[in-house]
Each structure stands twice: as C-alpha cells, then as structure tokens.
Design a protein around this nucleic acid. Sequence first.
RNA 1: GGAAGGGUAGCGAAGUGGUCAAACGCGGCAGACUGUAAAUCUGUUCCUUCGGGUUCUAUGGUUCAAAUCCAUAUCCUUCCA
Length: 376
Amino acid sequence: MKLEYTLIQKSKRNSARLGKVKYGDKEYPTPMFMPVGTNATVKTLSPEEVKETGTGICLANTYHLWLKPGEDVVNKAGGLHKFMNYDGPILTDSGGFQVFSLANAKDITEEGVKFKNFENGDTLFLTPEKSIEIQNKLDSDIAMSFDECPPASANHDYMQKSIERTIRWAKRGKDVHNNPNQMLFGIVQGGYFEDLRKYSAEKTVEIGFDGYAIGGVANDHESKEHVFEEFAFSTKYLPEDKLRYAMGIGDPIDLIEGVIRGVDLFDCVSPTRLARHGHAYTMKGKINLKNSKYKEDFTPIEEDCDCYACKHYTKAYIKHLISCDETFGARLLSIHNIRFLHRLMANIRDNIKTDTLEEYRDEFVKEYYGGNYESK
RNA sequence: GGAAGGGUAGCGAAGUGGUCAAACGCGGCAGACUGUAAAUCUGUUCCUUCGGGUUCUAUGGUUCAAAUCCAUAUCCUUCCA
C-alpha cells in the first residue's frame, strides 16, 4: 500500500499547512515529527515503545542497512516492516547525508560517491541507482533520492555544480525506481543561496516526485536565521499538494519555524541522542539530568507530560540510571524526548487550526529560552 | 620472629635529584550534540583575593635544589618460621 497525502487547511497568515497521511487504514496528521532508526531500530526502544510515543513514520538508513545486514537479507526477511516489526510507515534516507558526514569532496564524482568503510577499511561506492535499488529492496514506504549534501560553507560556484549533479542523480534514481508501493522524494539543495534553492526546487519538481525534501539545512552550525530562510527559499517553489520534508531538523524552535514556512515533515536524531547523553526536552527548556541538582529531585521530568517516563519515574531515578550507564535511563529519556516532540507538533497543529501559530511561537520562545533566545 | 616489597591528589597508578602542582585511567563537576562513524566528544578537577601558597605516610637529615638520596618511626602486602 502506498502512502497518500491530503492537504486539509492552509494558514491565511503564513505558509503553515495542516494535512494528513493515509497509510492503509491508518491516518497520521501533518505537520509531523519522525524519529530516526538508522539501523532499523530507534536506539534503545522497541517498536511498541516507538508507537506508544505517538510516532507515525519512522526512519531507517540505506547506507547502514546496505553494509549491515545487506539489503538482500532485509528483502528475504520480507522487507523492513517485517524485519524490524514496525507496521507504521517507514522512510529510508538515501545515504546522501553520509556523503556529507563520511566522504571527502574528492570522493564525489558524476557517477557516484566513494566511501571508506570505517569498520574494516573497505572501499565502497554508492550511486543514485544503487541507492534506489537498495531502498526498493528494503521496501520502505518513502524512498529518498540520493543527493549530495554539501557543507553550508560551500561557495556559490561549488553549490551550483553540486545541485546540478544532484538533479541529474535524482533523475537517474527515478529512472530505476520500480517499487509501486513506495513513494519517492526529491531533495532540494542550494545552501543559503535563494537563487540556487529556487533552481534546485524547480528542476526537481520538473522531474516529478511524490514529495520534496529540503536538504543541507543546519549542516555546520548554520545560524537559525539562515536555516529558517532556507526553509522559505525552498517551500516557496514546491507544489502545494505534495509533502515537504525538512531533513535532519529537530530542534524544537526549528520545528515551529519550519511549519510556519510550509514544512510538513521533520526528522532528527536529537531526541534519542540527547537522551543517551542524559538530556531531556521540557517546555521550559532543555535540561541535563546529569547535573547534580537533580540528585534528590523526586518529581517527573515534566508534571503535565503523558509519556511513560513522566507517568512513572522521577528525575532523581533517571539521573541515577544515567550515572550508572544503565540503558533503561537512555530508554526512558528517549521515550520522553520523542513524546515531547510529538506533543510539540500537536500544539503546532492546534495552532494552525486557529491560525495562531506565530503567537504560539512567541509564547514558546519565552518559555523555552527564558529570554536567552538568539536566532542569529 | 625472619625475608622481601611498598605507602603519590577522591580512588587506581606513572614518576627514582632540577624541565613536577606531579603523566594516564576512573570517579566528580560542567559543556557540546539538528537526514546517527555519536550510550559519543570537549573542558575542568590541591588552595588562592590569580600576586602566589601548600603538597607525594610522619619526623629529622644530605643538597644550591628532594615525590625521588639517607636515618628513624609508622602502616600495608607477600613469602618463610
């Protein structure tokens, strides 16, 4: 079964949109946050726990599953859903981000990208065709085009050559895509150059995809101001009836500002990575449970949070688990942080309905940053 | 009773005359983290009014100079009786 997106309501004051994604007999509202499960698992959580937090779509990664256990193993298992026992929609990233995080500029050619396998030194070569073939076999519900994700610091000249290549890669990938149950998304790049974002968006839309992603945002400590503008530079040139997905975005304020600029989907490793590092999101700001001040704090992370961790455990206990390096601590914090982002998205959707999202944003900034917010 | 080895910062452990306020690890205290090479990484960890002050079991000594050499005391470990 293929996902179907329906646009329900548009803000009159900004680009925010309310929509829904239909998946068989299930429906999920957008805008939505999608947790990341790189190795076909959201780290430390069972699929039941992932769903319990309110997750609809979750991610897995082409690059990682290609290396281990190999797409053929997943395919023999009956596809990703069966393999990892997740019956919700799954989006696979193409390996494009690994071009940014693992490859050097000289490893990137027209044909594809050379990687060094950090585990055994093997030289690996990934092409747009290969990425799509792997994703077809993995049988995810949304496949991503294989893109180059250049650093934010790349100059106009490099960025232009890069997006032109990424557009050619998108076309090559689409040409070999043959999984009728799988959506295929194109990816807009272009850094902080509006003309390049426009060009990239228009050319990608010309090829025609089931949805469009905004890539290369918040890459190397880009200012929030730039990130937000990149959202706007991109969505401006994307069709209204298709999903827009800001890749790798997950800082709470970025979600709100992203929605205001017309983004429907977000994913990020933050809630789970921060959790493993002892941090918890709260509506009053991010807290570090490792701090000694929580040693005897016998209150939940957030009084009014409905997650499993907040309903049953105290900060003192979770701090203790984290200090002892117990997985259960990371698990409780992962549950809370993912639930937090889903609650935030629910608030965002409520405020799109009443068209008060900008007021909500201002209120959130006041509460979350307590006057220490710097968007530049 | 005899023989041997040893006591170094919160803990473990390097250092055997000056470059030692003393490597490194752990623990502690903080910080970072945005399509996961990340349960990781970074900083800091004797006191200080940032000039300096006081340290390497204790005391005394040798020396221009001692964690480092000598003497005594004390505690610990192992082996023998």
